[in-house]
Design a binder for these strands. Sequence first.
RNA 1: CGGGCUGUAGCGAAGCCUGGUAACGCGCCUGCUUUGGGAGCAGGAGAUCCCCGGUUCGAAUCCGGGCAGCCCGACCA
Length: 572
Amino acid sequence: MRFSELLITTLREDPADAEVPSHRLLARAGFVFKTASGIYTYSPLMWRCLKKISQIVREEIDRGGGQEMMMPILQPKELWKSSGRWDRYVTDGIMFALQDRRATDLCLGPTHEEVVTAFADAMISSYKQLPVNLYQIQDKFRDEIRPRFGIMRGREFIMMDAYSFDEAQEGLDISYEKMAAAYRRIFARCGLEFSAVQADAGAIGGSGSEEFMVLADTGEDAIITCAGCGYAANVEKAESAIELVDAGEPLEAEEHATPDVRTVEQLVEFFDMPASRMAKTVLYQAVHAESEEFVAVLMRGDLDINEVKLCNAVDCLAVKMADEEQVKALTSAELGFAGPNGLPEKVKLFADRSLEKQSNLLTGCNKSGFHKLNVNLGRDCPDPEFHDLRMAKAGEACPDCSAALTETRGIEVGHIFKLGTKYSKAMEATFMGRDGKPTPFTMGCYGIGVSRTAAAAVEQNHDARGIIWPAPIAPFEVVVAIVDVKREAQVSLAGEIYESLLEAGIDACLDDRKMSPGSKFKDLELLGFPLQVTVGRKADDRVVEFIQRKAGDKEEVAAEDALPRCLSFLRP
RNA sequence: CGGGCUGUAGCGAAGCCUGGUAACGCGCCUGCUUUGGGAGCAGGAGAUCCCCGGUUCGAAUCCGGGCAGCCCGACCA
């Protein structure tokens, strides 16, 4: 491809609305153009990157036993009713819902479990046809609460979604492992530094779940990792070991006047007692499909509540902290004096495991201006239900090997789930089992954000001058740059090298644009091709420059050496 | 949806407080010169100043109401 025939438009300055490096650089280099909030147009160069990522995904999912197909974007409400997800997705506002001219409800597919499950139900009638793994690479639509960071979190985005169908759990375990392995190959081939972490299954549901994270400081997710044994989990899921507090034999509870002492910090000072001896009581509103309830959560004073864990423990759709009015109504006290004793009976009591054996706690007592010493759970208040509800933190001990945990940040580019029979049962999607009985499919689902992967690659690979594409997903592997297109020697030598690269199977391009050398060099650095062969003033002597974008090395080589140098870099 | 902020040419951006019909830089077009780190000179095109209403002789500017976008929090690939 000759650049004189390619639409490339770069910006001298950063667009005002771009914040993170990937968004800034992709917009400035003209790879993406915002059509509306969270909706982007991909330029010809960007599309080349996306096609390369897709192709890597395709090849590796195929190797893992996947079969590519294509599902509809436009989906009927009744399908989503059949899985029970319509109401939740519509009331949560995740889904773009619309009506056709006959007022039939439809949506733009945010994901395709329903479509594929209905398809499998129709097409698969016997266990003899299993296992099957179906996938597609397609646009997805989600009405994100807050689109952000350019194509990192868009409302329309490209996603690979695969769905496995097995007879039973054992088969699913195998299908899942195949996908996990394929995912590792995919991100490794894309040239990304990534980590597979344990994850919460969230709205999609199911048992096992791992996320694939591209490590980057600007990542939206926090990851807890252990250098000792390799344990890695999303903070939403992460566990850790902490030291329990021994507060001795249970003593008699005492109520103390604590005027205006409301926070843990204030209590530490007032009682001269470590926060770990206290239990804070936080009231939450738990949202269920058809109802809502209040729950109280007891957490040791020096630790934080993990709301994802809480949501799972309560087994509800969402939790939100009660507001001031609700707290006052439930505790009949001002904010800051909530306690486990004397709450309305309907308020279910949950507690973190850190408090399971701990005696003599300092808590609120639902009375303005008072706290209680030596509270013992079960004795001074109803027995709470104990769960791990705690946010793991860096510095705490690994749950597996007790080395110290560290926290890093990552961009979620892939997520795999063991769904089990959640959708097949809801939708009555069955096959004839070996025992002659209709059996629901045991399913897994596997997603990769293709467009997000491109953004993550930039996030992880850039410098002050611009993008540094990993070679496997770069729009071109090599750019042959002509410094002065008016000099015949340069044009012909560059053409010669360009042709030789193409013949060798290298994805090369020729920058034959008429522009001053300085701006051409700057422009190419911004665009981020991994290799550059510059044909300039020494063209007459058949000497060119070989430049590695990442290392910044610039080296004069004989024209004949350009091809072998490119080959040894790209195909070692 | 809550909190902070912004909307002026393709991009960046001044002017707004203190009303008088819109500056500058980049980019674009023409010509000449220039050609190894975002070139120089000369000429030129390009703006319903987000929209609607109000105040006023007069509104980018003041007032009211919309809409759109960005950033911080809850959703997710």
